[in-house]
Structures are given as C-alpha cells and as structure tokens.
Computed example of a mutant assay.
Amino acid sequence: MDLPARDIGQYIAKRANIVVKAAIKAVNEQGELLLIQHAEQGHWRLPVGEMRPGETIEGAAHRELWEETGWTTDSMIFSSLYSGPELRQVHANGDEEYDVIALFHALIVQDELVEARVNSDAGLKFFDPSALPAMNGISQTLLRRSGLTVQAPD
C-alpha cells in the first residue's frame, strides 16, 4: 500500500506534542516564593514536571514537589490551567512541545529540614516576590499569568 507523502512525513519530520504538566507556586510563611536553580544553565524556575500515565494532575504536583525539593505539603491547591503559544518549546531535534500546565499553590512550612536544604548547595531558595532572579520563560509566563509582576532577565 502506498501512503501519500503527507502521511509519511509525520514519521520523518519534526513532531509536535501536547504535554500535560503540573507546576507548583510554593511559598513559605513569609510569602517568599520557592525557586529551583537549573544546575547547568543557572536560571531559576518553579518546580514543574510532566504528568505520568495513570496519575492525577494533583498527584503529579505532589510528586514533582517531592522529586525536585525533597519536601511534601498538606496544602496543595489548584489555581489555574494555562496553555498557549507562550508555553511552546522547541527541542534540539526540531520537535515541538506545547505545554498545558496546571498551576498549584502550596505552603511550605519551614522546619529544620527545609532550612537545611535551603541553606545548602541544593539549588533551592525562597525569594521575596518583589526581588525575583532571572527565570526560565515558562516560569516567567506562569507567574505573570497568575498575577505576579515579573521582570524580564537582563
């Protein structure tokens, strides 16, 4: 059977995928925002990651917070669902990823364990919302859309 060229093209050309993710806008009791520093690129970002098959989006948020910080929370509240061209990523191989991101708000109670991780080389830090560092584009977009004023990096 001969397939039309347009059908074959989907297997050899770049692909576009829709990826469902959970992001966490976590704050401490002082209202400072938790960010994670990317080890290689140096920018800061919100905890965010893909939802896995068979997982709820709320479960993905809890898992991502645990995987990226080592912390859990009893206070994980759904805020909003975001999508659109600003949440598009192009990978090195040309594949495109269009993210649909559920943003959750969480409260991190700062105990001795939290203090030890924040004051180490783990790449975790709480920032005053009026003095945020340079962040990746997805984190900037999510924070702007959720009503937080974010300055573009220099």
Rank of each mutant, 00 (worst) to 15 (best):
V114N: 08
F104M: 08
R117L: 12
A106I: 00
G123P: 00
I108F: 00
V118P: 08
S120T: 06
F127C: 02
A102G: 09
L124E: 02
F104R: 11
M135A: 15
E112P: 03
G94C: 02
R117A: 15
Q89T: 14
V114I: 15
S130A: 05
H91F: 10
F127E: 04
S130W: 02
K125S: 10
L113Q: 12
F126P: 03
L124P: 03
I108L: 01
D99A: 11
A134Q: 13
N136Y: 09
I108T: 01
M135N: 13
P133I: 03
A92T: 13
Y98P: 05
K125Q: 11
L132Y: 04
D111H: 03
S120N: 04
E97C: 07
N93G: 03
V114Y: 12
A122Y: 01
A134S: 15
V100M: 14
Q89N: 14
K125I: 06
P133L: 04
M135C: 15
L113A: 12
H105W: 06
F127N: 05
N136E: 11
E96T: 07
G123H: 00
N93S: 07
H105L: 07
D128R: 01
D121L: 08
D111Y: 02
Q110T: 13
Q110K: 11
D111N: 09
L113E: 10
V114H: 06
K125A: 14
F126D: 01
Y98H: 14
A131V: 04
A116L: 10
D121A: 12
A122H: 00
E97I: 12
M135S: 14
V109G: 00
L132K: 06
F104K: 07
L103Y: 07
H91K: 11
H105S: 12
A92K: 06
N136Q: 06
L113I: 12
V100K: 15
D128N: 10
V109D: 00
K125V: 06
L103W: 07
D95Q: 04
H105P: 05
V114P: 06
H105V: 10
E115A: 15
V118R: 10
M135H: 11
D95W: 03
R117D: 10
S120H: 06
V109C: 00
V118G: 06
D128P: 01
Y98M: 06
H91S: 09
D128E: 05
Q110S: 10
L107S: 04
L107G: 02
A131M: 02
F126E: 01
